[in-house]
């Protein structure tokens, strides 16, 4: 009989073996209590990070609210792949209105619930709004800022895949520099998306001093679930920004979605942190710092940086952006390194 040694730590992650955890913190593959709010059968691409992120985020929100949850959805991949009438993957009350107004629609839902509760007609029902990076950082930015500023009781979740993937991979203000999109082609003097543009919505959310801001990736779903549950302990405006790889738009292998999410954090390209009332409260530390090439190389959107003559200057600039993230969001554990 072969002997299988018990491993308490999985290689390359901080994930502790289930057996060492208290039961409520253990991760399980299947659970009868899971609401499957975004049910199977939808039309997302293979390896879609957004579908994975939404499934875990909304189920966690459902769990945290005792299944009393309403969702407003911006136009985009998530809306299209989940709901072509008469089919719907949503097992919760869900509404799509427009591309740029999900935060405002959510404000309206929350206001209606508040009034109904004052009248004693409803139990407590919580509201999430969700959209892609285009619907969040570009066209929905005004409504999002308004919702933040009024501190409306809404959790907004942005699934950031760095571009307008639903319309065919065009640049958004969340597209990283140098990335190829259909509107930032790898041609000319500065191939791909330009440097010095774009915005990082979590920082802007923090500037509104709302109760809770967090970022997450689909590489660490327990962390994501934890942050959603934590967000639900606050009242007022909350924002969670989830990096969700898009195999189609990034030109990555569909089985690499989790790996790329992890690499985004481990290279410093995407900081994972929490903030309360405008101040950084927690950062997920990088376990083993890697150069940005490790993150860039598996993605065809950066392929033009790695031809016969690699674009060293561009890679150095991207590394500088990662280094800045690492400094700014305290991504390195000083004691450990």
């Amino acid at each position: 009989m072969s002997f299988q040694p018990v491993k308490f730590y999985q290689t390359g992650t901080f994930t502790v073996g289930n057996r060492l955890l208290v039961p409520e913190e253990r991760s399980v593959q299947a659970n009868m209590e899971r609401t499957n709010s975004l049910n199977s059968g939808h039309r997302a691409c293979q390896g879609c990070g957004e579908a994975l992120g939404a499934r875990y985020a909304i189920d966690a929100a459902m769990h945290a609210t005792n299944n009393q949850l309403i969702a407003a959805n911006a136009t985009g991949c998530l809306e299209v792949f989940s709901t072509p009438y008469p089919e719907t993957s949503w097992q919760i009350p869900w509404m799509h209105s427009l591309f740029g107004n999900a935060p405002a629609v959510a404000t309206g839902i929350a206001a209606a619930i508040k009034v109904k509760r004052q009248k004693g007609m409803k139990d407590d029902v919580r509201v999430v709004a969700q959209g892609g990076d285009g619907g969040t950082t570009d066209i929905g930015f005004g409504c999002l800022s308004g919702m933040f500023e009024r501190n409306d009781d809404v959790l907004y979740i942005c699934y950031d895949n760095g571009g307008y993937m639903n319309t065919g991979v065009q640049r958004s203000s969340a597209t990283p520099p140098a990335a190829r999109t259909a509107t930032t082609m790898p041609v000319g003097q500065q191939p791909g998306n330009v440097f010095g543009q774009g915005k990082f919505m979590p920082a802007i959310a923090m500037a509104h001093e709302i109760p809770y801001v967090a970022t997450a990736t689909v590489a660490d779903l327990r962390d994501l679930e934890h942050k959603v549950r934590k967000a639900m302990t606050f009242r007022g405006a909350r924002y969670i920004h989830i990096l969700v790889p898009c195999p189609l738009g990034w030109g990555s292998a569909s089985q690499d979605t989790i790996k790329l999410s992890r690499l985004a954090k481990e290279t410093g390209m995407f900081p994972v942190f929490e903030a309360e009332y405008g101040e950084l409260t927690n950062s997920s530390k990088i376990r083993r710092l890697l150069p940005v090439e490790e993150y860039l190389k598996p993605q065809k959107r950066f392929a033009h940086l790695f031809g016969k003559s690699p674009a060293v200057g561009t890679i150095v600039r991207l590394q500088a952006l990662a280094d800045k993230n690492i400094r700014r969001y305290q991504m390195l554990d000083k004691e450990a390194n």
Partner: peptide, 27 residues
């Protein structure tokens, strides 16, 4: 029992109205 919301634009005004009306509130 009435929520009065100062919104940031008319686009938001109608969007908030859409959300509240869809949640059963007279808007």
């Amino acid at each position: 029992n009435c929520e009065f919301i100062n919104v940031e634009s008319e686009f938001a005004a109608m969007s908030v109205a859409i959300g509240s009306s869809a949640t059963g509130a007279r808007t």
